[in-house]
Design a protein around this nucleic acid. Sequence first.
DNA 1: ATATCATTTCGTCATTTCGCGAACGGACGA
DNA 2: TCGTCCGTTCGCGAAATGACGAAATGATAT
Lengths: 123, 123
Amino acid sequence: MREILGVMKALADENRLRIVAALHGRELCLCQIVELLGLANSTVSRHMSILYQARIVQSRKDGRWSYFRLAEQDATPAALDAVSLVLQSLQQDGKIRADAQRLKQILRVDPEILCQRRSESPC
Amino acid sequence: MREILGVMKALADENRLRIVAALHGRELCLCQIVELLGLANSTVSRHMSILYQARIVQSRKDGRWSYFRLAEQDATPAALDAVSLVLQSLQQDGKIRADAQRLKQILRVDPEILCQRRSESPC
DNA sequence: ATATCATTTCGTCATTTCGCGAACGGACGA
DNA sequence: TCGTCCGTTCGCGAAATGACGAAATGATAT
């Protein structure tokens, strides 16, 4: 019960669904997700923690950066099924499509520069 | 987005998961669910409304009684998949097993008597 | 060693959600 | 018609959730 409930709660938030969709087939660092969603980095960090505790994402640290990706071998079956269901449902969603476009732009920028730019010019 | 988000939110509550599990392969009236969960009928009615709006359950009125069952032809694919995922995950859950046992007792009682008993003796 | 940078944690606030009882509405039966 | 009954809706208080900024943490570079 606790397991499936945690998974469902983790996926019962619009911003976390956007994060899951953005991580589909990709690995992103926190500042990239922050840039995509336009939320405070503390907020995004909290979202990632919730997704992590539900075994939906894995994290990896490289120096100062934390990279996140969808869990695969480490995920529970419930989490895997829920994620693929979500991904399928969001395939044609407008907001998710817009995120994908915007993500292309973000990925063109070196993360190093991306993070610094954030503190300089709060677009 | 709205659709899948509604489904996930509807299933991100322990009592609603218990309701979904109880409705597996069965049709129940509100007072039976009230008896099973031990919550106020207004609260259960609210839960059913949330599940209904997410297209997870269907409802049917027969006289004074409202009967609920898991949606099938009327459900969206996302809702169907989510429900089967939840049912599978809860198959071996202790609390759900206990509910199933208790439900057997409840189903032995005529609903007519069950509802009346509620107002007489608040166990 | 110190400064800087990306991330996490903490404290706080606004909003949402969940629970209940009371009031309301529709349906049955006397 | 009137009372009773099941269910829904409304209004409220308590608890959970999501957002932010500030402070703390951990790692890198000067």
